[in-house]
Computed example of a mutant assay.
Amino acid sequence: MSESRILRDRQEEAEAAFRRLAASGDDGSTAMLVQTKAVATYPTSASAFFACSPLRVDGPEVEGSSASFSADASRTVFAFNLGAKTPPVGTKLLVHSCGGRWTFRYDG
Rank of each mutant, 00 (worst) to 15 (best):
P88Q: 01
L7E: 12
S65N: 08
Q35A: 15
R56F: 11
V95F: 02
R56C: 05
T41C: 09
C98Q: 10
R20Q: 13
H96G: 01
M32N: 00
D58P: 00
A16P: 04
A46R: 02
P43G: 07
D9Q: 10
L33N: 03
V39E: 14
T44Y: 11
V34D: 00
A40G: 05
T76P: 07
R75F: 13
D72G: 04
S53F: 15
A73E: 08
A84M: 05
C98L: 14
L93G: 02
V89A: 13
A17Q: 14
S70N: 09
S74T: 14
G90Q: 06
R75Q: 14
Q35I: 07
S53Q: 09
A71T: 07
T91P: 04
G59R: 01
N81R: 03
A71I: 00
A23N: 07
S47A: 15
V34L: 04
A23V: 06
K92W: 13
A38L: 05
M32F: 12
C52E: 01
A46F: 12
D58L: 04
F80W: 11
P43F: 06
E61L: 15
S68Q: 09
S68Y: 01
Y42R: 00
A40F: 14
F49M: 03
E63C: 12
F49I: 01
A40L: 13
E13L: 12
P54W: 01
F50W: 02
A48W: 08
G25P: 03
G83I: 03
G28N: 05
L55E: 01
R75Y: 10
F80Q: 03
F69T: 00
S97V: 10
A38K: 14
L21R: 08
T41R: 06
G83T: 01
T36F: 10
S45I: 14
V34G: 02
T91I: 08
A22Y: 09
V95R: 00
A22R: 10
H96Y: 15
P88F: 13
R19H: 12
P88M: 06
A14C: 11
G64K: 08
V57I: 14
T91C: 10
V77D: 03
V95L: 04
T30A: 13
A79G: 03
L33M: 09
L21W: 04
T36D: 06
A40N: 13
R56L: 11
K92R: 15
A23W: 08
P43I: 00
Y42A: 06
G83E: 00
S65R: 12
T86E: 03
A16R: 15
A38R: 14
A48R: 04
Q11H: 06
L55M: 15
S53L: 04
G59M: 05
A73C: 11
D72L: 12
G28K: 05
C98P: 01
V34M: 05
S29F: 14
A38S: 15
R56A: 07
S47G: 03
L94S: 10
D58C: 05
V95M: 02
L33Y: 09
R10V: 02
E12Y: 09
P43A: 06
G28S: 10
A51V: 10
A71E: 12
N81A: 09
V34Q: 03
Y42N: 05
A22S: 09
